[in-house]
């Protein structure tokens, strides 16, 4: 029952997002379709007459709005997200071409920052009120005050330019020829270090704070007292009793974290000119390529909401109390 409700809920969310995407360009005053229907408008990207026709047909502005809505939905189901003005290619194709880099970046960062955040949060809670806890807390609150793009810029300046340790833009060296596959892998990893570090540092605070709070809550529970009353060691209690209970809310949080990371790529990929979807979004904004912009919005939103849905499902499997209801 619970599961079905969730499914219906997420389906409703999906419909709402799609509708926002449909209505936004149509209700915004003037922009963004005005430059399509008005041939004299100042066009951000050079557009041939033929391309313009294609776009107009895609939006079907001459038809009644209900018909436009239906054909839009049908298009979405067939994976038709429109035509990118700047790249002169279908939006979906442009996005998919960039996807692997974003996945690599987000995947690497998640794999590092979630365990690290959990570890630090648990350590902090376990040392509640001691110097170690206060020190960790203040340090992490402080680094979390850096906007990710500013942090990225600082890393570029110090590790990329001053120390010249890491490349500062792109995902691999342009026009490089590699003597072995390892050379290529090394090059890609070398390019990944700074952007991934930026994402990890600027997102670790959320996981850390959540784990710390969750753990503090659990440590005050009666069953921890029961465990102590059995004579179990502190280490054992931490691992067997506290951690599992404290981790439950973190599972849901991790999906949210992935969502934040996906959003974070917008800035980090921009700073490092990393050829993923975030950087694509920046270009779409810069050139006011609305079909592309909306396609990316849809893509990101669905990815984030999807991650939340998966987290909900995993949570139900992990917590024995929910499973049996």
């Amino acid at each position: 029952m619970h599961q079905i409700n969730k499914l219906v809920y997420y389906f409703a969310i999906l419909l709402i997002i799609l509708s926002i995407n449909f209505f936004l360009p149509r209700v915004m005053p003037g922009d963004p379709l005005s430059y399509l229907s008005d041939p004299g408008a100042d066009m951000p990207a050079r557009m041939t007459e033929e391309k313009r026709e294609l776009l107009l047909e895609y939006y079907g502005l001459d038809k009644p709005i209900s018909e436009q809505y239906i054909s839009y939905m049908v298009g979405i189901i067939h994976g038709d997200l429109g035509w990118s003005i700047y790249y002169g290619a279908p939006v979906l194709e442009v996005i998919l071409g960039r996807l692997k880099w974003t996945l690599l970046l987000v995947g690497t960062s998640t794999a590092i920052h979630v365990p690290l955040g959990i570890l630090l949060g648990a350590t902090s809670a376990w040392a509640r009120g001691k110097k170690k806890d206060t020190g960790l807390l203040i340090s992490i609150l402080s680094i979390s005050s850096f906007p990710s793009f500013f942090l990225g810029i600082l890393l570029v300046i110090f590790f990329g330019i001053k120390l010249d340790l890491f490349p500062i833009n792109g995902a691999q060296t342009a026009f490089a020829t590699y003597s072995s596959p390892f050379g290529k892998i090394f090059d890609i990893l070398h390019h990944l270090v700074l952007p991934a570090t930026t994402l990890v540092i600027s997102h670790i605070g959320g996981t850390y704070l959540l784990m710390r709070n969750s753990m503090l809550g659990v440590l005050g529970e009666d069953y921890i007292m029961t465990a102590r009353a059995k004579g179990l060691s502190e280490q054992y209690i931490l691992h067997r009793h506290a951690l599992m209970n404290a981790l439950l809310p973190i599972v849901t949080m991790t999906a949210m974290t992935v969502g934040f990371l996906i959003m974070g790529t917008i800035f980090v990929e921009t700073v490092f000119a990393y050829p993923g979807i975030g950087n694509l979004l920046y270009n779409a904004v810069l050139y006011r390529d609305y079909p592309l912009l909306q396609g990316i919005f849809l893509f990101m939103t669905i990815a984030i909401v999807g991650a939340n849905f998966i987290a909900d499902t995993i949570y139900v499997r992990l917590d024995p109390r929910v499973k049996n209801e």
Binding site: Y223, T226, H241, P320
Partner: peptide, 30 residues
């Protein structure tokens, strides 16, 4: 001494049992 010489049965069994651990295991670990 705890558990082996002196055992304490805490008040309120609902909150005193670990919700995510099997009951048998909670007894067996001691």
């Amino acid at each position: 001494i705890r558990g082996e010489e002196i055992a304490m049965i805490l008040q309120n069994p609902t909150t005193s049992l670990n919700p995510v651990m099997r009951v048998g295991e909670q007894i067996a670990e001691a």
